[in-house]
């Protein structure tokens, strides 16, 4: 059972065009909040890395790099934890079907490591039933 339910309202919501430059500005906004709330450098590193991967996945795999589509980022950064949701307009995917990028036949492939990194660095990574929205949770440390 996830610590943060997927239907819990989050105070900040930003809708951007599916564009990595715009995505990076949201990333910086989130990181400024973590800094203001006293998150450690290691914690901020984990959040930046994971949010970057989630935004790139939303743009590239979800919205197929279509700038006419939108990415929605909702978040709450408080003194206990960071909760960030990233959704795209794609048809979604089944996260259980993503192959292990460290297996011998995939280790030399140039892509497919984003979800693994998110899961390694965060306390929770959950997907909506449709699979077009991911929720990232990192306890403050």
């Amino acid at each position: 059972m996830p610590v943060v339910p997927f239907d819990q309202a989050l105070p900040h919501r930003i809708v951007i065009a599916s564009d990595l430059h715009a995505a990076r500005q949201v990333e910086e906004q989130v990181l400024r909040l973590t800094e203001a709330k006293g998150y450690s450098k290691e914690c901020a590193f984990a959040i930046r890395l994971s949010l970057e991967e989630a935004l790139v996945n939303a743009h590239r795999h979800g919205n197929r790099c279509d700038a006419a589509k939108k990415i929605t980022v909702s978040f709450r950064i408080d003194r206990r934890r960071a909760v960030i949701r990233v959704s795209d307009e794609g048809s979604g995917f089944d996260p259980c079907c993503v192959p292990d990028p460290t297996c011998p036949e995939r280790i030399c492939l140039p892509n497919g490591r984003g979800i693994m990194l998110m899961r390694s660095y965060l306390d929770e990574v959950t997907y909506s039933p449709r699979g077009n929205e991911v929720q990232l949770v990192k306890e403050r440390c």
């Binding site: 890395l49 970057e52 991967e53 790139v56 030399c108 140039p110 892509n111 490591r113 984003g114 990194l117």
Partner: peptide, 17 residues
């Protein structure tokens, strides 16, 4: 270098090849 993404890892793999 203080931050890199999985896409940067991909470039390193391609370069190694």
């Amino acid at each position: 270098v203080e931050h890199l993404s999985s896409a940067a890892l991909g470039i390193l793999i391609t370069l190694d090849k």
